[in-house]
Nucleic acid binder design. Structure first.
Lengths: 343, 343
DNA sequence: AATCACAATTGCAACGTTGCATTTCTTATG
DNA sequence: CATAAGAAATGCAACGTTGCAATTGTGATT
């Protein structure tokens, strides 16, 4: 019950500081204070200073509900969090990246976990109907993603982690999957592989198509064989491990493997090792790396890194510019794969 | 540009549905509609039905800003997301768990990533000063956690994933770390281990103390030696791997290891294997499992599971009850460790 | 001294909601 | 028939903000 010195809140009878408080302190009107705080240029410099000073001294922060009610602006961005587990630590890094980017802005982040991708359009519908955020970030886009279609139709600000095939441009930030595939194939070819295999997840994503296409092209260019492990679709880690073991025992197995998902990489690599293969020796492997785990686990393996933290930041910056009215087609960026070749 | 049939929004001239809309449609007053929707018992059943019907037909959803401005209730809960990477996939599972629990309520989840734990009290201060949420979930608590202290002082609803040592009770949900340690020690002892070692992370957490204490007790009870790997503090995965390798070559190494962190488990186990040891044979290992990765990777290893998804749900339920005014001391629950012994 | 132009400031209404105090309606009672 | 008593419904103000229209202040020009 002793007096506190820590808090920035002023008097013991703790009233919230509003525009009215500042108005009373400075002797100006509510409107003037409001105008001033938003940088009204018609105001005398002197009064602007006075207001700014008082606001700072009192620790004034605009009330979100007030602003939102009046302007319709929520100062919220929403992340629709896909349930996919392919990239380990994806959610955390993405959120951290977004957090970093909104630091110092008035934006808050709300996260909407998605349990079933079937329902994803309901989530978007809800946000659209209830104006629950100023903008949305979605991930794992499909070529003709329903969610994207809905938000384009509604002219609602959003950005996707992943491209689509819509004619109307929309903001996106995407990993350069084609470059990833080419780099990986070339690396394997340069290590002497004659037949490479691509292990890749969810075939509904645009990413899938981009990688597959680039994979085949690159293999043709290098003049080597190219397979796709179709059985990888929606496999559990345990199943993938079994597939790895099987593969290890297969005399006709490919001599190079490209793995798009960390989860698959771990499972498959474990299976291959179970089968007695030396990774990087008996069989070559290049994987897409996003978390810090894989390099620890397989320090000798080649990888190509996607920086999800950076992606989160970039997505946010694009979205904020979109919210401020920037043209969609000026808000499309790609992330360069970063190869980490060992030995 | 053709007419849309999909949306639930009514007319083409798309006005937001508010209480006023319902009032106009039903011919009742604003106040009546408002009262009715909140279950005013003084209203005639007939009118209540009429209002409910109209609201449903129009797809009315109360405006968050309006409610918030009027009542001060934000209908938001905030998760302060610790940057720790000890439990793989922790963030995603926690968020999914929370998401599951707020499904169907009016609550939204905002996530505030923490970059530096030093700043964590600033985050809380911000929430407290700006009433930015109705309640907060924090994780990785310390025995005398500053954040907890602040929120107790401010009488602000929160719940922690982890206990503290404050005299004043507060809501928490925690993994039963002591039971974890005992189970692990007993398991190792039953497998014939004579000297066990505990590998555990952040010594600032309450969890650390709980585990260490229980670990020593259990070892004494079993009559076996007990060490703590002090060097584990804040080690990078690469360093942990090196430690594992070192350990493998150490003739005097312990014959049983207990590992509290998945990240450490992966690194250490890899190092031990590098050193030529057979896990589960040459050296016994029990680890705390939270993600799906470890079981894939080390299917033969004993583990004790903590269900983070369930924890997220439980934390949320506790918090919501706290927000509704329930007593703090009735909102303290523990999660039972789930042993998965192999072979 | 009256008028004008312009700079500086202000009042008012509205965003959607709720809770209190009040009014209107209905029915029973003397 | 007047009235009281309760049931049912409503008007009003307020939460904090903003944008427009309107007002006031200050010199300069006639």
């Amino acid at each position: 019950m002793s007096s506190k010195t820590t808090s920035s809140r002023g008097s013991p009878a703790n009233q919230r500081v509003t525009l009215r408080t500042i108005a009373e302190v400075t002797g100006l009107s509510l409107s003037t204070v409001s105008l001033s705080l938003r940088g009204g240029t018609t105001l005398k410099q002197e009064t602007r200073d006075k207001v700014a000073e008082a606001a700072k001294a009192l620790g004034y922060v605009p009330d979100r509900a007030g602003v939102r009610l009046r302007t319709g602006k929520t100062n919220v961005i929403a992340l629709v969090l896909d349930g996919a587990e392919d990239s380990i630590d994806f959610a955390r890094q993405m959120i951290q990246g977004i957090g970093q980017a909104i630091k110092g802005t008035r934006y808050h982040l709300t996260v909407i976990p998605e349990f079933d991708r079937q329902n994803s359009s309901e989530t978007i519908r809800y946000i659209l109907d209830n104006r629950t955020a100023d903008g949305v970030i979605i991930t794992h886009t499909a070529p003709r993603d329903k969610r994207v279609q809905m938000m384009i139709d509604a002219d609602f600000p959003f950005v996707s982690h992943g491209r689509t095939e819509f004619y109307t441009p929309h903001p996106y930030h995407d990993f350069h999957a084609e470059m990833f595939a080419s780099l990986a194939v070339e690396r394997l070819a340069s290590k002497g592989c004659r037949r490479v295999m691509l292990v890749i997840g969810d075939h509904r994503t645009t990413n899938y198509h981009n990688i597959v296409t680039a994979f085949h092209k690159a293999a043709a260019r290098a003049g080597i064989g190219a397979d796709i492990l179709e059985r990888a679709q929606g496999r559990s880690p345990a199943e993938m491990r079994a597939i790895g073991l099987e593969l290890a025992k297969d005399a006709h197995r490919p001599d190079g493997i490209i793995c798009d998902s960390e989860m698959h990489t771990i499972a498959l690599a474990s299976g291959l090792q179970d089968g007695g293969l030396r990774l990087g020796g008996d069989v070559q492997l290049v994987y897409k790396q996003t978390s810090g785990i894989l390099p620890t686990l397989f320090p000798a393996l080649d990888s190509i890194r996607e920086d999800v933290f950076a992606a989160g930041g970039e997505l946010t910056r694009l979205l904020l510019r979109r919210i401020e009215g920037a043209e969609a087609k000026s808000l499309q960026t790609m992330a360069e794969p970063q190869p980490h070749w060992r030995s």
